Amino acid sequence: MLDLLLALWPLFALIIAGFYLRRWNFPNEEFWPGAERLNYFILFPALLFSSLARAPLNNPALPRLGLAVMLALAIGWVALLVIRRIRGWPAARFGVFTQGVLRFNTYLGLAAVGSLFGQQGLTLAAIMLALMVPTVNVLSVWSLTAERGVSARSLLLPIAKNPLILACLAGALINFSGIGLPFGSDRLLSLLAAASLPLGLLCVGAALRPEQLGGEIPALGWNSLARLLAMPLMAWLVAYALHLPAMESTVLVLFFALPTAPTAYVLTRHLGGDSQLMAGVITLQTLLAAASLPIILTLLS
């Protein structure tokens, strides 16, 4: 437990620092949107690209890990559809609950995996992201637009332009080609990647909205429990059923124990969902994850 706390507390310290820096208007309000864009389009793709370009992709457990990811997402999605049918949620709320249960904070996940397992863990995480990001994005958009319909182009075009997906695909292609990262490009990518996770965690903290926690307490509560407790338990059962090795199981469970993504707020507002409820879900899950994540990983170990 102590080792886990030592690995995780600096990550949450950066999140708290980001929250207070934005509250103190430092360096200024215009800094944070630009920092998020820089990270999303440049620094974070550099981390994913370099991780996959140099990774040994002959791990025999990788196909089972991919299957486990898709099974866990499918189980969570089917459960949400059943509950929606029973409760009659409109799309504006269903989209929030879907993102609260299925989306994940990528920056926190990669930072935690890197702290616990180093480069080997980052490789597994990058492979998982290549599967999870497009799947979760499609489900999120569909759930927010279920009542008015959405075209296949509207679902797939954002995925085709997603810099994280493109970085994963490009890194895998470079890996399989055997070209490698010549002429010092590996060092350049390492420098860019090193800046990504600290900046990402600061931006996560800057996006927190505690003032939104006074609203729908039951909805916020059950959605947080589903994401932070039920989903990692279900992921562990899937990993156990597929006989995943220890590190692959831990990385899988960790990603399903992460709080939802701050970018869910932007998508919810853009597609007409309940953005106030989404802001509350993001904030509560991020705060609770500081306690739930070490407990879950300790129980797993």
Results as ranks from 00 to 15, higher is better:
residue 7 A to K: 15
residue 239 A to V: 11
residue 129 L to P: 02
residue 60 P to N: 15
residue 277 L to P: 02
residue 193 A to M: 02
residue 264 A to R: 09
residue 181 L to H: 00
residue 238 V to R: 00
residue 294 P to G: 00
residue 203 C to R: 09
residue 111 A to C: 02
residue 160 A to H: 10
residue 174 I to L: 11
residue 263 T to N: 15
residue 117 F to Y: 09
residue 72 A to Q: 14
residue 145 T to K: 11
residue 97 F to N: 05
residue 11 L to A: 05
residue 134 P to C: 07
residue 77 W to R: 04
residue 136 V to D: 03
residue 219 A to S: 14
residue 270 H to F: 15
residue 198 P to R: 07
residue 169 L to H: 03
residue 168 C to L: 09
residue 221 G to I: 13
residue 157 L to G: 11
residue 129 L to M: 07
residue 69 V to H: 01
residue 294 P to V: 00
residue 56 P to L: 04
residue 299 L to A: 13
residue 206 A to C: 12
residue 130 A to E: 15
residue 168 C to Y: 02
residue 113 V to H: 02
residue 113 V to P: 01
residue 136 V to L: 01
residue 105 N to C: 06
residue 65 L to D: 04
residue 72 A to N: 14
residue 234 M to T: 14
residue 38 L to M: 08
residue 91 A to G: 08
residue 187 R to A: 11
residue 35 A to H: 13
residue 224 S to A: 12
residue 66 G to E: 10
residue 290 A to E: 11
residue 243 H to Y: 10
residue 165 I to F: 04
residue 204 V to Y: 10
residue 280 G to E: 02
residue 124 L to G: 04
residue 251 V to K: 03
residue 95 G to R: 01
residue 94 F to E: 10
residue 298 T to P: 07
residue 135 T to F: 05
residue 161 K to P: 04
residue 16 I to L: 11
residue 193 A to C: 00
residue 139 L to Q: 02
residue 224 S to K: 05
residue 223 N to D: 12
residue 182 P to Y: 00
residue 206 A to E: 05
residue 213 L to D: 05
residue 133 V to M: 07
residue 92 A to Y: 12
residue 229 L to I: 08
residue 19 F to T: 09
residue 210 P to F: 12
residue 279 A to N: 03
residue 109 G to E: 00
residue 83 I to H: 08
residue 125 A to G: 01
residue 300 L to N: 06
residue 43 L to H: 03
residue 285 Q to K: 09
residue 72 A to L: 11
residue 245 P to K: 12
residue 174 I to N: 05
residue 270 H to R: 15
residue 7 A to T: 15
residue 252 L to N: 05
residue 259 P to D: 12
residue 216 E to Y: 08
residue 35 A to N: 11
residue 212 Q to I: 15
residue 211 E to W: 14
residue 30 E to K: 05
residue 96 V to I: 06
residue 291 A to M: 13
residue 8 L to W: 00
residue 146 A to K: 14
residue 229 L to Q: 10
residue 36 E to C: 09
residue 180 G to W: 00
residue 125 A to M: 02
residue 121 G to I: 06
residue 12 F to V: 10
residue 129 L to Q: 01
residue 290 A to N: 10
residue 148 R to C: 14
residue 34 G to P: 15
residue 108 L to H: 08
residue 106 T to Y: 07
residue 42 I to E: 10
residue 120 Q to M: 12
residue 154 S to Y: 05
residue 71 L to Q: 05
residue 56 P to T: 03
residue 225 L to Q: 08
residue 191 L to R: 15
residue 95 G to F: 07
residue 264 A to S: 14
residue 225 L to M: 14
residue 127 I to D: 00
residue 183 F to Y: 14
